[in-house]
Amino acid sequence: MNPAFIITIDVEADDAWRGSADVTTENAAYLPRFQALCEKYGLRPTYLVEWAMTSSPSMREFGQSVVADNTAEIGMHLHAWTTPPFRPLTEADHRLRPYLADFPPDDVAEKVAAITGRLEDLFQVPIVSHRAGRWVLDEVYARVLVERGYLVDCSVTPHVSWPGAKRDYTRFPSQPYFVDLADIGRPGDSPLLEVPMTVVPTARAGWVGRASRAVGRTSLAGRALNRLSPEVTWLRPNGRNRRDLLGLTRTAREAGWPHVEFMIHSSELMPGGSPYFRSRRSVEGLYADLEALFAYVATGFCPVTLAEFHAGISRAAPRS
């Protein structure tokens, strides 16, 4: 059976990394080009939309179009500092970008309810797929998602620890599993399917990890070391990793993995919208990499959205 190929796009404001209180959403106008490329190769993306983007007329028009044409799925992505209700956790949430998991449980529930309702009103479809802002999910957050009817999460990044968030995914499963709501790092019987991001250790992971721990992972030296020789490889384009993208998908196909999950930010599709693709030339290079990857996966993979993947897993599950 061919592996599923899942495309996820975090649809969020322009250059959210800069920490500015001024939010712009110009990158929404660049989504149709990406969608056209997906359709050229028969691929079915899932757009995980953050609150700030729901105010963009371009995003609303685009999302309504792909829903009407049944060419993509709309899901939810939540940044705690832009999603109401606004009860600041720090002196400057827009700059410090606290994780939703840092907020009291009632705030978590209210923010999830607010953005879910907003997306469902705009696009007139159930919203059942989700990725946490800055990748951090915990048990409280997962239970809120289940209570709101979510069926799929894709926040887990295997082999990666997020020290500032105190969220360590290094021992989490790398293949899809229904989560245990008492411990989201293990399989259970909840209705929430975790579809982990495709992240694999590199051949140099051991010595790089030891060296970066010695100097401090978040220090200048630690960040430089990981950039030069990363501990893990993601199925995520950065303008320099076409070979890695193709290698990961080739490995998945040969090994018979159930899925691979690709991700990109919507702002990376716009020149100057992210720290990684600052110029038109760099965005054109990105599209050359995407063309090569999508042409390869067009045969030998099964293109599905997150909700479609969940439906396939559910159908395949044995009945008691």
Rank of each mutant, 00 (worst) to 15 (best):
M1F: 02
A4E: 01
A4S: 03
D10K: 06
E12W: 07
E12C: 04
R18F: 05
A21P: 14
A21S: 15
T25L: 07
A28F: 14
A29M: 00
L31T: 04
F34E: 02
Q35P: 05
Q35A: 11
K40H: 10
Y41M: 01
L43K: 01
V49P: 11
V49R: 12
E50M: 03
W51G: 01
M53I: 03
T54N: 07
S58D: 15
M59G: 06
M59E: 06
F62Q: 02
G63F: 14
G63M: 11
Q64G: 14
S65C: 10
V66G: 00
V66C: 00
V67W: 05
V67Q: 02
D69S: 09
D69E: 09
D69A: 12
A72I: 07
A72K: 04
E73H: 08
M76R: 07
M76G: 09
H77A: 13
H77D: 14
T82E: 15
P84M: 15
P85G: 03
F86K: 14
L89H: 15
E91T: 13
D93F: 09
D93A: 06
L96M: 12
L96V: 11
R97Q: 15
R97P: 13
Y99C: 12
L100R: 12
F103T: 05
P104Q: 06
P105I: 09
D106W: 15
D107S: 13
A109N: 14
V112I: 15
A114W: 04
G117D: 05
G117I: 03
Q124I: 00
V125F: 06
V125D: 08
P126T: 06
V128Q: 14
V128D: 11
S129W: 04
H130A: 06
G133A: 13
V140A: 13
Y141S: 08
R143T: 06
R148P: 03
V152N: 03
D153E: 14
D153F: 10
V156L: 11
A165F: 04
K166L: 08
Y169F: 09
Y169S: 01
R171S: 12
R171F: 09
S174N: 02
Q175A: 14
V179E: 01
L181G: 08
A182T: 12
A182S: 12
I184G: 08
S190Y: 12
P191Y: 02
L192T: 02
L193H: 02
P196N: 11
M197V: 03
V199M: 05
V199P: 08
V200E: 04
P201E: 00
A203F: 12
A203Y: 04
G206I: 05
G206L: 09
A211F: 09
A211S: 08
S212K: 03
S212M: 02
V215F: 11
R217L: 07
R223C: 00
N226F: 00
R227C: 02
W234P: 01
D244F: 05
L248R: 00
T251N: 02
E254Y: 03
P258G: 07
V260R: 04
F262V: 05
F262C: 05
M263I: 04
E268Q: 13
P271N: 01
P271G: 00
G272S: 06
P275K: 04
F277K: 03
R281D: 11
R281A: 15
D289G: 07
L290S: 06
E291Y: 01
F294W: 11
A295L: 09
V297T: 08
G300L: 05
F301R: 03
A307P: 01
A307E: 15
E308T: 07
H310C: 07
A317H: 09
P318K: 12
S320H: 07
